[in-house]
């Protein structure tokens, strides 16, 4: 498999005054085009730091991120992020929030009317056209996250980065949104990297699950292939042997071999 996105020997050291903490150590990961990869690990293991490095919001201390064989080290719309807490700008309407990115990315390549159509198209993908003139404070948490996804998708990113996108949602909304994301991935074929600490979510959505060891100096402990056929159906998978086996593997990794030790 030819890597589309490549994390090449990434270390990350945070320095505060004289003290320095090595958060990530020797992260190597190749992600193919159209692949859905989840990164799972206990909290504090540097998952978010890793995603931020890919997004360019944080720089790696050592090593680099290659996207289509080119080094990327600053943020850009080719690696759009869906943030955990949606991060919609509260003074803009749903439409304007999506527009913010679209107007920048397609300033030259699309006319005003085309941009408008593109914004509406993306809102339609996440079924949020009905609320296009509402402000984030007027819609529910799940809806905000949908808009966040639309905003990211509308930038036509090469890689879509999801930072615990469903973490702040209730279980039912979460399931619904997971289905939406799965359907979008099926339809658009995006390359997706998702941070999660939900085992079921990881197995359900991913092609591969990257399991992180505990920090400090966290690294990739194991990579698990999820050989389940798509489209996947939540209910059918509940009894699928393959699914259960994958789930078992992740659970074993997280709770036996790399148990989370509370830093006292």
């Amino acid at each position: 498999m030819k890597p589309y996105l490549k994390l090449d020997h990434i270390d990350k050291v945070f320095t505060r005054g004289a003290a320095s903490t090595e958060v990530l150590k020797d992260i190597n990961l190749n992600i193919g085009k159209g692949e859905y990869v989840s990164i799972i690990g206990h909290s504090g293991c540097g998952k978010s730091t890793m995603l931020n490095i890919v997004a360019g919001l944080t720089t790696a201390s050592v090593g680099c991120v290659l996207l289509e064989d080119r080094e990327v080290n600053s943020p850009g719309p080719d690696r759009a992020v869906v943030f955990q807490n949606h991060s919609l700008l509260p003074w803009l309407t749903v439409y304007q929030n999506v527009q913010l990115g679209v107007d920048k990315v397609f300033a030259k390549s699309k006319t005003r009317a085309e941009r408008d159509a593109w914004i509406m198209h993306n809102l339609n993908l996440v079924q949020m056209t009905h609320a296009k003139d509402k402000r984030p404070s007027e819609i529910s948490g799940g809806m905000k996250q949908r808009v966040g996804i639309a905003r990211a998708l509308a930038m036509e990113p090469k890689v879509l980065l999801l930072d615990e996108p469903f973490g702040a949602l209730d279980a039912l909304t979460r399931a619904h949104l997971q289905d939406s994301v799965m359907a979008l991935h099926q339809k658009l074929g995006n390359t997706i990297v998702m941070i999660t600490h939900d085992v079921d979510e990881a197995v359900l959505l991913s092609d591969r699950i990257v399991m992180m060891t505990n920090g400090p100096s966290a690294t990739i402990g194991e990579v698990l292939d999820v050989p389940l056929a798509r489209p996947r159906k939540r209910l059918e998978l509940a009894t699928n042997a393959q699914y259960l086996k994958c789930r078992q593997r992740v659970l074993e990794f997280l709770y036996e071999r790399h148990r989370f030790v509370e830093a006292a």
Binding site: A55, G56, L57, S74, P75, G76, P77, R79, A80, V81, F83, N85, S87, L89, W91, L92, L100, G101, K104, V105, M155
Partner: peptide, 24 residues
Amino acid sequence: DYRNVAAVVQLNPLEFFWKVMIPS
């Protein structure tokens, strides 16, 4: 978060000032 959004969208400093800083 707002700064991150602006960075991903690649707002230039002037756009950042008018579209994010002042309203925020």
